[in-house]
Amino acid sequence: MPAVDTVLLPLCVGLFLLGVIATGVAWRRHNKGRVIQGVALALAPIALFFSGLLRLVWNGAVAVINWAGAVIFSPAVWFGLSLLGLCIVLWVVGGLVSRRGAGGSKAEPGKAVTAGGLQTPKASATRAVAKTGPAKGRQPAPIDEEMAEIEALLKSRGIE
């Protein structure tokens, strides 16, 4: 019998016995649903042992522990983990920059983009305001900038 089985088999038998005890307590309380669940949980460790899945989990845990022990003493692994962290940070920053750049690169309706990237009001928009102007005797309604942006977006999509 390999060394892994000498550890896992007694552990599974112990968990099985705890499950049987819990099932006995549920039986005495006449809780049939809990009895069925107790039998299922009592049999689970034995089933995992005989199917080989428990050994797979054991080997995975041992591999992770060995890797963690190697990380502590290996400068090459620390360098690799540092590079991995740098990759993640650069990926996140690149996503933020591209999202911010995509939103700012589109010209707003009613504005023209100059060679330097600055946005200025289009001449036609300023002429239209100058021609119509406010009616005499009436004061223009205060313009909310956010509402003006929303209205411009709706008009650009053909919604009025």
Rank of each mutant, 00 (worst) to 15 (best):
A3C: 07
V4Y: 08
D5K: 08
T6I: 10
V7E: 02
L9D: 00
P10E: 01
L11C: 10
C12W: 00
G14Q: 07
G14Y: 07
G14W: 02
L15T: 00
L18P: 01
G19A: 03
I21C: 07
G24F: 12
G24L: 14
H30S: 08
R34E: 14
R34D: 13
G38I: 00
A40C: 13
A44S: 08
P45A: 01
A47D: 03
A47N: 05
A47F: 13
F50D: 02
F50T: 13
S51C: 05
G52Y: 05
V57W: 10
W58L: 06
N66Q: 15
N66L: 13
S74F: 05
P75L: 12
F79Y: 10
L83H: 01
G85Q: 06
G85R: 04
C87Y: 14
C87H: 08
C87R: 07
C87K: 10
C87S: 15
V89L: 09
V89A: 09
W91T: 15
W91K: 14
V92Y: 11
G95M: 09
L96H: 10
R99K: 11
G101N: 15
G104I: 13
P109A: 04
G110Q: 02
T114I: 03
T126M: 13
A128Y: 11
V129M: 10
A130D: 12
A135C: 06
G137N: 01
Q139M: 12
Q139G: 11
P140M: 03
P140T: 03
E145H: 09
E145Y: 09
E146D: 11
E149N: 14
L153G: 07
K155R: 15
S156I: 04
R157S: 05
G158R: 02
I159M: 13
